[in-house]
């Protein structure tokens, strides 16, 4: 009986953890990204791109950690505010935002910290 109860407890714990794996990532997303990309990641039409529907992000050919740290500007004519970077965020914080986006918004596998570090090194060389 005792075993059953503790296993239920464990299951509950695992489930509740799964539901909210990237708590810090979500908090940071809401603080730094949501005013333009919206709390639910839907963006603002063709002014601020959506994250949840982004084919570029889904393709995996976009260095998201670098965009968060150094900003991102793609348009020839800037319509809204340009995406500024957040150089003060640590590697771990950027990793948590990135994985919140990949896991919760894009429903993809989270990225390993090693891969994120590698991505960040790739752009720091050019800056």
């Amino acid at each position: 009986m005792k075993l059953k109860l503790s296993s239920i407890l464990l299951l509950f714990l695992v489930l509740s953890c799964n539901d909210h794996q990237y708590v810090q990532g979500e908090a940071l997303y809401q603080a730094y990204c949501s005013s333009c990309h919206m709390a639910d990641g839907t963006g603002l039409k063709n002014v601020y791109p959506s994250i949840i529907y982004s084919a570029t992000l889904k393709s995996g050919n976009f260095n998201l950690p670098c965009a968060i740290r150094y900003g991102h500007q793609k348009r020839e004519v800037q319509i809204g505010a340009a995406m500024e970077g957040y150089p003060k965020l640590s590697d771990v914080e950027i990793s948590n935002i990135t994985n919140f986006i990949y896991y919760d918004f894009l429903e993809q596998k989270p990225m390993s910290f090693t891969k994120i570090k590698k991505d960040l090194t790739a752009c720091s060389a050019g800056k």
Binding site: S34, S35, C36, M38, T42, L44, K45, V47, Y48, Q78, I79, G80, A81, E84
Partner: peptide, 16 residues
């Protein structure tokens, strides 16, 4: 204003 990085995008979303 269009270059507003803070509250405007959210307000615009509601206007939409």
């Amino acid at each position: 204003y269009t270059f507003c990085p803070t509250i405007c995008p959210t307000v615009m979303k509601q206007m939409l």
